[in-house]
Structure formats: C-alpha cells, structure tokens
Design a protein around this nucleic acid. Sequence first.
DNA 1: CCGATTATGGAACGATCATTCCAGAGGAGT
DNA 2: ACTCCTCTGGAATGATCGTTCCATAATCGG
Lengths: 194, 194
Amino acid sequence: MARPREFDEEHVLEAVMERFWTAGFERTSAQDLVDATGLGRGSLYAAYASKEGLFEQALLRYRKRARAHVDKLDAEPSAIKALRILMTDVVDADLPRPHPRGCLATNSAIEMAAHNPRIAELVRENFGILRRGIEGTMRRGQATGELSSNRDAAALAMFVFTAIQGLRVMARALKADDRQSLFSVIEQTLLALR
Amino acid sequence: MARPREFDEEHVLEAVMERFWTAGFERTSAQDLVDATGLGRGSLYAAYASKEGLFEQALLRYRKRARAHVDKLDAEPSAIKALRILMTDVVDADLPRPHPRGCLATNSAIEMAAHNPRIAELVRENFGILRRGIEGTMRRGQATGELSSNRDAAALAMFVFTAIQGLRVMARALKADDRQSLFSVIEQTLLALR
DNA sequence: CCGATTATGGAACGATCATTCCAGAGGAGT
DNA sequence: ACTCCTCTGGAATGATCGTTCCATAATCGG
C-alpha cells in the first residue's frame, strides 16, 4: 500500500451514472466524464480501465433504484395499490424536465444489449430484480384474496413488467401533455389483474 | 437539368435504414453508410446533407412497416385475432438472429428523441400510425360485439400499444429462450380486453 | 457538338474520440 | 528520514469521426 485514493467513489459513480443516464453511452465522451467527476483522465482510467468499465459500474449502481422500488412494493399491504404506486413512480421518475431520461436499464437494453454481452447480462439482472419483486407482490395479492388465484403469478408479473418497459419508452418519446394518457395505461393494466 | 443520378434511391435508403436499425445512430459511421450503399461520400452528402438527414429519411421510410401492420390488422375480421397476429408479428420481426434489432422507431425514441426534436416528431408520427390502427380495430371489435362497448377504445388502444413497446424492449434484451414468455405477455394483454 | 450544370467518389480537413504516458506528489512501511 | 509504491492530472497519441473539396465524368438543352 502506498498513497491512498483522494476521490470519493460514491460521488464519482453517482456523477457518472447521471451522465450516462441522460445522454446514453455513445453521447457521453471521456471528457464529459472528466468534467462531471472532477477527476483527471489518468485517475479515471487507472480506477475503471475503460469507458465501458465505467458504464458497468454505473449499471451496477443503478440496481439500488430497482431494489428501492421493490422495497416500496413490499411496504404497501394492498397488492393493487402497491403496483399502482410503482407504476406511478416510474412514470414520474422517468419524466423530469427538461428532458425525460427514462430508465437507465431500459435505455441500455436498447442502446447496448445487442453489442455488449456483459452489459446485456447486467440489464437482465436489473430487470430480474424488479420482475421478481412484482411477482412477489402478485403472490401476496393472491394469498390475501385480493387477486384471483387461478392465474399464473409469474405470467402476470411478466405482463406488468413489460407494461412498465412500455411506459418507459413512451415517457422518453411523448410530449409532456401526453402524461395523462400514461396514467390511463396504468389503470388499464391494473384492471387486467382482477 | 444535367447529369442524372446513377443510384437507385430505394436501394440506398433501404440499406441505410437497415444499418441504422441494427446498429443505431451513433454506432453507424459515415464510412459504414458509404460501404452499405456503395456510394461515395460526396454523393451521399450531396443528396442528403448530413448523417441526421439520412436518418430522417430512414425513419420516413420506416413508416411503411407501420402501415403494413395496420393493413394486416384491417384484413382480419376478428379484432382479437387481428391484435394477436399484430403482436406475434412484432415479436417475430424484432427477434431475428443473431442480434435482435427491435423496432427502429422504439430504438430512436430511446436513443434520439431527447436530443433531436425533428426525430422525436417522426417517432411520434410512426407511433401514431400504429396506435390509431389499433384504435380502429378496437372500435370494430366493439361494433361487432366481440369486445365490451363500455370501455374507452382510445384508452384500450394506448394500453395495447404501450404493451407492444414493452415487448420491443424485451425483445432487444432477452435471450432467445425467453421468447416464450413474450407470447405469454401477448395472451395476458389480449385477456385484458374482454 | 458544345457549353452549362449536376453527379461522382476519393482525397483531404479539422475536430474529437478513447486511451496511454509520464513527471511530480504524497502517504505507508522500515 | 528515506524508499517504495500508488495516485494524480495534464500532455500527447493515433485512430476515427462527420463533413467538405475538387478534379473528372456524364447528361442535358440548344
């Protein structure tokens, strides 16, 4: 051991994630990352090897968001209410002004998954966290009688999860005044669970 | 008038669209487009001004796909069957080997919409063609009594359309053996219309 | 058949890209 | 206090980016 690191890894990765999230991988340059983190090029490359390595770290960090969503799901007793809160949160989180940033995992699925197997795997892992959380909520709702028990919980969870991916795409493409139609989609999705 | 064009615009734009579709805007270089079309740089830029101009043309051309989907919807008498065919077609079309390419409009919504208003508008136009087609099918189903008439056809159409966007995201991220789960999502979506 | 005008495509451009290098700085172990 | 070893950050590198230039070719109207 010799000289210790001077930078705060939490802060650096947060800034990196933010940049990749709004601009995407290709539109974010190494210079952008230097500016965003305040580190020198040498330090950045010594610690994370490459731009792709940095992106992987950002995606790993993004898992916390998925886990937070799952925690919030588990905190609400009513399954339907929990799923409504989840989807409303997703729409609200993906639509900040001035530019909607969508979901980092969804964006990465489109932009990177076909070109980088490592990233594709991380995206699927991110997806899995939320999908399994939804499935748990679904089973809970079936146990309490809130949801019909004669339907496949895993299939229903995949259905809701896919709807969320659709909402995230629409959030990135629609104008702000179409926001209301996304909430209508949420209600139609919840209606389908009864 | 002087020397006429030697290249076939149809062929050129088809090749350009194909390239942007699989690789995305940023991962497609001007050199890639020169190679794909067989034209020289000068010819390409004289005809289309810029890489973005070329992308716009590709997206304009892509509308034909959306229109073909709508035509197929209109050809099937049963609304439910028509929508099942549509969604199955979408999943099949988005998942060719070796790399799933998804949907050009969906990919562009994620990659470009926040950065380029012109592209964002073309994406919304593409979306609108299919969404309105679905809405028409929905009304038809209500008229024949196949679908319940006491639900909002526009809201149902938006719901199905958003589900399709979700399917397109999943198609780009999932492994080939998860294909079956996408068909399960299709059935859950159709079930919600009854 | 002859200017006028446009298409052609490869060479050339400056900018920017991701990455590497390196000289200096600074704690850790002895 | 001295020697490692690592961190640091700006300079440098070669590649590639999108775009422009330009000499040549080809077709038009007259």
